[in-house]
Amino acid sequence: MAIVHGFALFMILLGIPFFISGTIGLLRLPDIYTRLHALTKADNLGLGLIILGLILEAKDLATIARLLFIWFLVLTASSASCHLIANTALKNKITPWKRP
């Protein structure tokens, strides 16, 4: 049991840096498109790891099912909205940043 518990803690602690890098990316990156990269990928992975950790700590099946459902919802919502924002940005003629 101690190993599972330790692994759960490790997963949660591993997830947090991804959220931090998502936020840093949102601030440092030069345009909408690159910021979308940081937001979609880093935050989803961070949430995935935290949810994995919490699943290992969960006491009943209902909690596990609910956590998995939340993960699934956020994953679909953020990848679909990533496409939607990039698509609308292109239609609004926002040109992607290029390294000069």
Binding site: D31, K41, A42, N44, L45, R99
Partner: peptide, 21 residues
């Protein structure tokens, strides 16, 4: 998904911001 998360982290924390979009 794991690879792409680490990829973003690596680029974002790098002082030179190594991106060629």
């Amino acid at each position: 998904s794991l690879v792409s998360g680490f990829d973003v982290m690596k680029r974002v924390f790098h002082p030179d911001l190594p991106i060629r979009p």
